[in-house]
């Protein structure tokens, strides 16, 4: 795969405050995404992890502080130029009936195209290579609504790949997928990471986050309580603190990442 990420762009927040309808979800959060790595943002429901991702992706304005893309306030940069460096795969998305996989992936080229010009050879090559990487060549002309959940999610990821951005944000990319489809999607994400992209994803499932992320950010009540490699972050105390769950930890013999076993509800609150 050829990719557009020679210089590592940076995405960071500084004293970020995010609010929904005057209700503060994130109070004061500063982070910098590790370049070239997969970061998983984990935490219990309502901890603000999706809100953080929306802030990072400029979907919502911060109530305070700032989101910095390559050192500059993301909201002060033209949205189209941001879209050439930063791709977002949100959770809220739908495809009009009859839209084919190839058409969907083609949308990823919008930030690189002018409205009055037909797709360039470069655009077509980017779409083809994204379809290839997501193993969707055979399905390219099929309408999205005829695909399985995993195939459909791969098509959406392929759209973000065609966007050719060095940064990629994914909001719960594997929710509602069965185990096989989850692994399909996670392996595609790893494959993308191997091209040098900086990836951040919100993940519900802590074991998957340990398995597929290089870096974990654990959030609770709108704040980061721990960050680092899965081995550093995932401790029995953290799992109890985040989820109210007791567990034992082993080291995955294949990857060295922590394995959660013997999980049960905490008895003491």
């Amino acid at each position: 795969m050829t990719d557009a990420n020679s210089a590592n762009p940076t995405l960071a927040t500084r004293n970020l405050r995010m609010a929904h309808d005057h209700h503060t979800v994130i109070e004061d959060l500063s982070l910098t995404l590790s370049p070239g790595r997969v970061t998983a943002i984990v935490g219990p429901n309502g901890c603000g992890k999706s809100t953080l991702l929306h802030g990072l992706a400029r979907v919502h304005h911060p109530a305070g502080g700032s989101v910095l893309l390559d050192g500059g306030d993301i909201h002060r940069q033209p949205s189209r130029e941001v879209a050439r460096r930063l791709a977002l795969l949100p959770q809220d998305k739908d495809a009009p009936q009859g839209l084919t996989v190839r058409d969907l992936v083609g949308f990823g080229r919008h930030p690189h195209q002018d409205w009055f010009r037909p797709p360039s050879p470069e655009d077509r090559a980017a779409v083809d290579s994204a379809l290839g990487a997501a193993r969707l060549e055979e399905l390219a002309e099929r309408p999205l609504d005829t695909l399985s959940g995993g195939q459909r999610q791969r098509a959406w990821i392929a759209m973000s790949m065609a966007q050719h951005t060095p940064l990629l944000l994914l909001d719960e990319p594997t929710t509602a997928l069965d185990l096989g489809h989850q692994i399909e999607v996670f392996e595609l994400i790893r494959q993308l990471a191997a091209t040098g992209r900086t990836i951040a994803m919100v993940i519900h499932d802590l074991p998957s986050a340990c398995r597929y992320a290089d870096h974990l950010i654990a959030m609770k009540e709108g704040a980061i309580i721990s960050a680092g490699t899965p081995g550093e972050v995932v401790t029995r105390a953290l799992v109890r603190d985040l989820y109210g769950v007791e567990c034992d930890l082993l080291e995955d013999p294949a990857t060295g990442s922590p394995l959660l076993i013997n999980m049960r509800r905490s008895t003491d609150p």
């Binding site: 992706a57 949205s79 977002l88 949100p90 809220d92 930030p111 966007q163």
Partner: peptide, 18 residues
Amino acid sequence: RPLASMALGEHVAVGLGY
């Protein structure tokens, strides 16, 4: 064009730079 991308969802459209 922007309207076509908004059919994919508002957040998707933002992600594409609209």
